[in-house]
């Protein structure tokens, strides 16, 4: 059973970062997450593989360029709050 509701996931950076990859797919809007590190910060916070990233720290990033979104997360410091939802819900 897939949860289609958007999820707010707050995480604290670990020894190897937040524990996920942020990807962009050619000719498709939105950024998606995969390679969520098992038991890593993102996993513990409730992020799942193939989730679509909607907000970073309360700011909607759906229409932001990829590099800007990566910069937002990197500049967030040791904690970041992401709003994600499953690909199907998006």
């Amino acid at each position: 059973k897939v949860n289609h509701k958007p999820r707010v996931c707050k995480m604290v950076k670990g020894p190897s970062g937040f524990g996920f990859n942020l990807n962009m797919v050619k000719n498709k809007p939105g950024l998606f997450i995969n390679e969520v590190q098992r038991h890593g910060p993102a996993d513990v916070a409730g992020v799942e593989n193939n989730d679509v990233l909607v907000e970073v720290n309360g700011v909607n990033v759906i229409n932001e360029p990829y590099d800007n979104v990566v910069a937002r997360i990197k500049e967030s410091g040791d904690t970041v709050t992401l709003l994600v939802c499953s690909k199907d819900a998006y």
Binding site: N21, N23, M24, N27, K28, K74
Partner: peptide, 12 residues
Amino acid sequence: NMISLVTQKTKL
């Protein structure tokens, strides 16, 4: 296959 179409990828 979605993986083959990934154009940007960053480990965070």
